[in-house]
C-alpha cells in the first residue's frame, strides 16, 4: 500500500543553482579574507554560542567514558574485589574522588615540568570538546582570546606535542591535533638531526616526509620539533619512529611515526603562549 505523496512545490532548479553559487561565493570569500573577516568572525561567534552545549555534552558523557575505563580495568581490579567489598560505599566514593584528583594532579605536574624544562610561558586549559565530525582531528579547550590565546599557538600534552590552535573564540579555542590531515610540523630526528615534516592523515597516522635518503633512520628514534618556520619551538617531543621503508621509486623514505602524546581521552593541555621573559641575571654593575 502506498500513502499519498506530500504536496510539495515543484522542483526549482534555479534555487539549487543559486545555492550552489552562494556556497562557492562563501568559500571564495573565506579563502581570501583575513582572520578578522566577516566569516571568521561569524565562526567565532557560532563557536562561542555552542560552547555551553559542548561543555554540557562532555560533562554528561563523562559516565560513559568512566564506565568504559572501568570495564577495561576489570581484569586488573577483580583480584581486589574481595578486599573492596569490606569497605562501605561512602569510602569507595570518596576514594574515587581522591583518585581522580591525584591523577589530575599528576598530569598537571607532568605538564608543568615539561614546560619549565623548555622555558616556555604557558596557559593550562581543559578539554571541553572532542572531534565533532569524522573529517577533522580537532578538540576544543576552555581558553580563548580573553585569556590571551591566539591562532597558531602550540599545544602540549604531558607526553609531547598535541597540535596548535586554529580558531579562537572569546572563551574557547579549537586545537588541530598533529594527526589531523591538514597538520604539518617541522621536525627532526634526535640522533641523526635529519629534518623533515611530520604530517597527519585522514586515518590519524603520522608520517615524516622529506627526510633525506642518506639519513640513517631507525625505529624507536625520537622525533622532535626542529623550530623551522617559527611555529613550534625547537625540541618539543613529537613522537618516535615506528617503521621505515624505502619504496623503489620514491624520492624520500617512508617513515611512520607514533605520537608520544596520548591523543585519545585528553583532559588537560598546556597552550604555549611564548618564551618566558627570562630575568636579567647579568652583572648589576
Amino acid at each position: 500500500m502506498q500513502t499519498p505523496g506530500p504536496e510539495n512545490s515543484p522542483a526549482r532548479p534555479a534555487l539549487l543553482v543559486a545555492l550552489v553559487v552562494l556556497a562557492l561565493i562563501v568559500t571564495t570569500i573565506y579563502a581570501r579574507e583575513s582572520d578578522r573577516g566577516p566569516l571568521h568572525t561569524t565562526r567565532s561567534a557560532v563557536q562561542s554560542m555552542v560552547r555551553p552545549v559542548e561543555t554540557a555534552g562532555t560533562w554528561l558523557t563523562t559516565p560513559i567514558r568512566a564506565t568504559s575505563a572501568w570495564m577495561s580495568s576489570l581484569g586488573v581490579s577483580r583480584a581486589e574485589v574481595a578486599e573492596l567489598r569490606a569497605q562501605n560505599g561512602e569510602l569507595r566514593r570518596r576514594n574515587a574522588e581522591l583518585e581522580e584528583a591525584r591523577q589530575e594532579n599528576e598530569r598537571l605536574r607532568g605538564l608543568v615540568r615539561l614546560v619549565e624544562a623548555q622555558k616556555l610561558a604557558s596557559l593550562g586549559a581543559r578539554v571541553i570538546g572532542r572531534p565533532e565530525n569524522s573529517w577533522e582531528g580537532v578538540i576544543t579547550v576552555d581558553r580563548g582570546s580573553a585569556d590571551g590565546v591566539k591562532v597558531g599557538m602550540p599545544v602540549m600534552g604531558a607526553d609531547g606535542l598535541l597540535g596548535q590552535t586554529v580558531t579562537v573564540a572569546k572563551h574557547s579555542a579549537k586545537v588541530r591535533l598533529i594527526t589531523d590531515q591538514r597538520s604539518g610540523v617541522a621536525s627532526m630526528l634526535q640522533s641523526s638531526r635529519a629534518e623533515g615534516i611530520v604530517r597527519g592523515s585522514i586515518n590519524g597516522q603520522l608520517t615524516m616526509d622529506f627526510v633525506s635518503k642518506t639519513a640513517t633512520v631507525t625505529p624507536g628514534e625520537v622525533v622532535l620539533t626542529s623550530g623551522m618556520g617559527g611555529v613550534f619551538p625547537k625540541g618539543l617531543v613529537v613522537g618516535e619512529v615506528l617503521d621505515v621503508s624505502a619504496p623503489a621509486n620514491a624520492l624520500y623514505p617512508l617513515i611512520k611515526v607514533r605520537p608520544t602524546a596520548k591523543l585519545q581521552g585528553i583532559e588537560e593541555v598546556l597552550i604555549l603562549t611564548g618564551p618566558t621573559s627570562a630575568p636579567d641575571v647579568g652583572s648589576t654593575e
Partner: peptide, 10 residues
C-alpha cells in the same frame, strides 16, 4: 568546524 566554510553547504 575549523576547515573552509562553504564546501559542506554546497
Amino acid at each position: 568546524g575549523s576547515g573552509p566554510i562553504g564546501p559542506m553547504a554546497l
